[in-house]
Design a protein around this nucleic acid. Structure first.
Length: 618
DNA sequence: ACATCATGCAGAAAA
DNA sequence: TTTCTGCATGATGTC
């Protein structure tokens, strides 16, 4: 049935016939839509009538190979800075900037699934009122709408200039493609240039300014003008008659129908500045648009398929945190999943730019993310607050591209589940196949990616085709992490585990003898037979991981380093990773950081502090 | 006041 | 004598 629909849509697309958005979307995960159907029935009623219209004039431009190049030509996700995925967020994230749109006073009626696909509508017949309705929804959408998906994408748009405020804040990402028409540049897309400044702090500041006023980019007035024009025209003019893009989109839908729902799509929003940057780099012509569209779609699918991991723990002040526990020195921006409380309260993560990872063990983790260790460091990009802690919220709000993970449920568990995607350039978590960690550890400064890094990006891109395996390869769920204390790395061979996380994510212990637990060392693939147990302690328990001596030794772990424990949701085994944190030239004997800051940040119990950001925000 | 956890330390076990 | 084991204590953070 669905297959038939798919064929029909495809034929229509190729034939330049009208294609109903409804039909196109029907190709997607039926469950996701069914679920949405109920919620958004009302709007669908009206939206559903709007046919997707593909301009026949573009027929010749339709490159049937687009679908093929889709996954090959895309700029690799890692190329996008500031990717951030959190959970459910689009709603919770609904930033203040997302003010309601305006043209219509219609209440926040339910959303239309076509909302996210608005860009496919070339039919400008939709009246302003309808349009207002869309935006109204987009902007008012505050109620978290859990989906079975791990993530949704959301890209915020900075507030428009004074006179436009309220009208365009919540523009759909696709709508914003329209901006590309206005910026004329054929520079090659260089993600690094997204940085407004080589100085992260500076960048942060710039971004803040940007949040208040639109970027003073050349032609920004035109942008605004065009934007207003779009408002009048329904705002969807950008893709008007562009069947090629529609085709691309359709192919993407087919590829991702199992993973992406309309809800995900609907939550795609772009920062205007991002669009402008993108159009600057990609060009404002058709190819440019195509590239950006691909990029966004791929980015979105990546986010959906694999929710990135949590933020790493804060580094001890004297240590070098060049990375997270999951990647070789790169705090993974995507799926920002900081300690719940931190996120909510805007409490930061210490990732001082000067820190950098000195991990020695070859690790696969760095390659598990779209953002490689040699690429962007959102922490760096977003700067740090004086305390050496990046404002979390800042991270969110400044990221040109943000992925807000819904909740990771689709990844297996209702809570804090982080799944790592396979690297674009490796096929196995253990084998790595990535650039030497030494490389990865370098360049983690506030500077733009080095040419070496960019080369790596290209390499990653060229190998992107291998990403097809990521879904099946990794189903790792983040369980807990622990910053190692002297007593953890001493000769006692035992590591105290955070109580809440242990009780939440590790097997329940009936006796204090505990249980044997095999931990596969992610770095070396070696399996360590450890013992997980507890000690009675003040009417409570103290959880320990014993027989950790060799693991610590082999990994060269020292005080201040940390371990991260995951479970493979597929085979149920536990995986452990030791992450070394060093700052060359600095010694650890300095004053010790506050204990709480030293410890793992995943305290959240059921809401592990590293739980998805779904509740985050703002 | 209470909870967590880093670590001190006594006693047992092993070398 | 050294190492291991397990509990106790106290510092620190949270409620």
């Amino acid at each position: 049935m669905i297959k038939d629909k798919e064929l029909q849509v495809e034929q229509d697309l190729h034939g330049g016939n009208e294609v109903k958005l409804e039909d196109m979307m029907a190709v997607m995960n039926p469950n996701g839509f069914e679920a949405m159907e109920e919620d958004h029935h009302e709007v669908m009623g009206s939206i559903g009538e709007k046919d997707l219209w593909l301009d026949r004039e573009q027929e010749n431009l339709l490159d049937l190979n687009d679908a093929t190049i889709f996954y090959n030509d895309f700029p690799p996700l890692p190329d996008f800075p500031c990717m951030s995925s959190s959970s459910s967020s689009s709603s919770t994230q609904a930033p203040k900037k997302r003010v309601t749109a305006t043209t219509s006073s219609s209440s926040a009626s339910s959303a239309s699934r076509s909302d996210s696909f608005a860009f496919l509508k070339s039919d400008a017949e939709e009246d302003t009122r309808e349009r207002g309705k869309f935006q109204q929804y987009k902007c008012d959408q505050v109620k978290p709408e859990p989906t079975a998906l791990s993530s949704t994408a959301s890209m915020e748009i900075p507030p428009p200039p004074e006179d436009a405020i309220g009208d365009v804040d919540c523009m759909n990402v696709m709508e914003n493609f329209g901006y590309m028409d206005l910026i004329d540049s054929n520079e090659i897309w260089d993600p690094s240039t997204v940085f407004q400044s080589e100085n992260p702090q500076e960048y942060l500041e710039n971004q803040e300014e940007e949040a208040v006023a639109p970027p003073l980019l050349e032609g920004s007035q035109q942008v605004q003008k065009k934007q207003n024009q779009d408002e009048e025209n329904d705002g969807f003019s950008f893709l008007q008659g562009n069947s090629e893009l529609a085709m691309i989109f359709f192919e993407w839908l087919k590829q991702n129908k199992d993973h992406i729902s309309a809800e995900d799509m609907r939550n795609i929003k772009l920062k205007r500045s991002t669009i402008e940057s993108a159009s600057k780099r990609l060009g404002s012509n058709k190819e440019g648009k195509k590239q950006l569209l691909k990029l966004i779609l791929e980015w979105d699918s990546a986010a959906v398929v694999a929710a990135p991991p949590a933020f790493p723990p804060p580094p001890p002040p004297s240590s070098a945190y060049g990375g997270d526990p999951y990647s070789n020195g790169v705090p993974v921006p995507v799926s920002v999943n900081p300690p719940m409380n931190q996120v909510i309260n805007g409490i930061p993560y210490p990732y001082p730019p000067e820190y950098h990872m000195m991990e020695q063990v070859q690790s696969w983790s760095s390659s598990q993310f779209p953002i490689s260790s040699s690429q962007y460091n959102p922490y760096l990009e977003n700067g740090y607050i004086p305390q050496g802690i990046p404002q979390h919220q800042a991270v969110f709000n400044r990221n040109p591209f943000q992925i807000f993970d819904t909740n990771g449920e689709r990844l297996g568990s209702p809570s804090a589940n982080w799944v790592y995607w396979s690297p674009p350039h490796t096929s196995s978590p253990s084998t790595g196949g990535m650039i030497p960690s030494s490389d990865a550890s370098q360049g983690h400064t506030a500077d733009r990616p080095s040419s070496q890094q960019q080369n790596y990006q290209r390499q990653a891109s060229s190998n992107r085709v291998q990403q097809g395996n990521w879904k099946t390869e990794k189903n790792l769920k983040f369980l807990l992490q622990k910053v190692l204390k002297q007593s953890d790395v001493g000769n006692l061979g035992r590591i105290v585990l955070p109580k809440k996380e242990a009780e939440s994510h590790l097997p329940e212990l009936d006796s204090r003898d505990g249980i044997s637990i095999a931990m596969e060392d992610i770095g070396t693939s070696r399996v360590w037979n450890m013992r997980y147990r507890f000690w009675p302690n003040n009417k409570s328990r103290m959880y320990l991981l014993e027989n950790t001596g060799d693991f610590v030794r082999v990994n060269g772990l020292q005080e201040g380093d940390f371990i991260v424990i995951y479970s493979d949701t597929k085979c149920g085994k536990y995986m452990i990773r030791g992450v070394k944190v060093r700052q060359p030239g600095l010694k650890l004997e300095g004053k010790k950081p506050a204990r709480r800051n030293m410890r793992n940040l995943c305290s959240a119990g059921h809401g592990s502090s590293l739980a998805p950001i779904k509740r985050a925000v703002r």
